[in-house]
């Protein structure tokens, strides 16, 4: 059902929702950017629409609300192990269309790829998604090229508009909040991006032969292996394991899983001091091929949703979207 709300009703709606749900949304973290007096937009808990950054894509994706950067899997002592409790409350996660397609990728990896991951599943089950519109498409995204610009499987769509607010509710459980807030019914269609500044053509003939392309060496010479492109990506799903033995008593400790990056040293290290992808060029190749080739071969659609965050964050100004276009162009020639 669609609704129109006044500003006061919007505030009331958020207040009421916060009673039951934890609301996670893009928030401006002032002064927390890389450089002095620069900000970063990333996910935080909110209780009102004013705390949310509506007019700018978040620098870091919603991913951390479903897949914590550090997650303790269990605590252990000499002869026992215990699993920490999952989230105590249901949550609403505010995100864009491309990101909602990202959730499909996370689900594919963590729920449907052989078996369901206990830790991911228990957060995922308690999560509903609130779509944020893209009436003014972001500058770096290429959702239209990737077919991720029109996500319709949202639970709720919300759009603040000056003194008014609009919503489209597709989740029965959430309807009552609109009635409580006194919202009036209205026809509401989400703002979707119809066109992006960036357009991307996927190469169609990638194969193991593509491994030897010169292009990888070129990017390899530029990439510093910082991993930012992976950490901001809504679809990167890799983690590593850390066994921590507490310093005061090494007989107790915990096992954590922690985000990992295929660009950072150590990612392919295995017992015996072996490492598979040593050069930065090989790692960059792996990332790009994973996003637009390997994953698709297995699941039938590309992994990348075209949010453009990796382009925005790269300190070396490496544009992954440009790389893809170059690969496609090379095929033509």
């Amino acid at each position: 059902m669609g609704y129109q709300l006044t500003k006061t009703q919007m505030d009331e709606l958020f207040r009421e929702l916060s009673e039951t749900y934890d609301l996670y949304a893009p928030v401006l973290m002032k002064g927390e950017g890389c450089f002095s007096e620069t900000d970063v937009v990333r996910y935080g808990k909110v209780t009102s629409p004013d705390e949310i950054v509506w007019d700018r894509k978040s620098d870091y994706s919603y991913k951390e609300t479903l897949l914590p950067i550090n997650e303790t899997l269990f605590y252990f002592t000499e002869d026992t192990a215990s699993v920490p409790q999952g989230p105590k409350r249901d949550r609403l996660v505010f995100l864009r269309s491309c990101d909602l397609y990202g959730v499909k990728r996370l689900d594919e990896i963590y729920l449907k790829n052989g078996f369901s991951d206990y830790y991911y599943a228990r957060i995922r089950e308690r999560t509903k998604f609130v779509l944020m519109g893209c009436g003014t498409p972001c500058k770096s995204g290429f959702c239209v090229s990737m077919g991720t610009n029109r996500a319709e499987n949202y639970d709720l769509y919300i759009k603040p508009d000056g003194e008014l607010g609009y919503a489209d509710c597709r989740c029965g459980e959430l309807e009552e909040y609109f009635r409580k807030a006194g919202a009036v019914e209205a026809r509401v269609v989400p703002d979707y991006a119809e066109e992006n500044r960036e357009q991307v053509t996927l190469p169609k003939k990638l194969s193991n032969e593509s491994f030897t392309r010169e292009i990888w060496n070129e990017y390899g010479a530029r990439c510093i292996g910082c991993g930012r492109c992976n950490f901001v990506c809504p679809t990167c799903t890799c983690f590593t394991m850390q066994d921590v033995f507490y310093r005061d008593n090494e007989k107790a400790g915990e096992r954590r899983r922690v985000w990992a990056s295929c660009q950072v040293d150590g990612y392919t290290d295995i017992a015996g001091g072996i490492s598979f992808r040593k050069t930065q060029g090989e790692r960059f190749r792996f990332k790009v091929m994973h996003k637009i080739y390997d994953y698709e071969k297995r699941f039938g659609y590309p992994m990348c949703v075209g949010c453009g965050r990796c382009d925005d964050v790269c300190p070396e100004y490496i544009s992954y979207s440009n790389c893809i276009n170059r690969l496609a162009k090379e095929e033509e020639e």
Partner: peptide, 17 residues
Amino acid sequence: CGVCITKCPTRALTRSK
């Protein structure tokens, strides 16, 4: 000096207010 903060890829390290 703040060098570590500029290097951190996840914003685990940030500047003091």
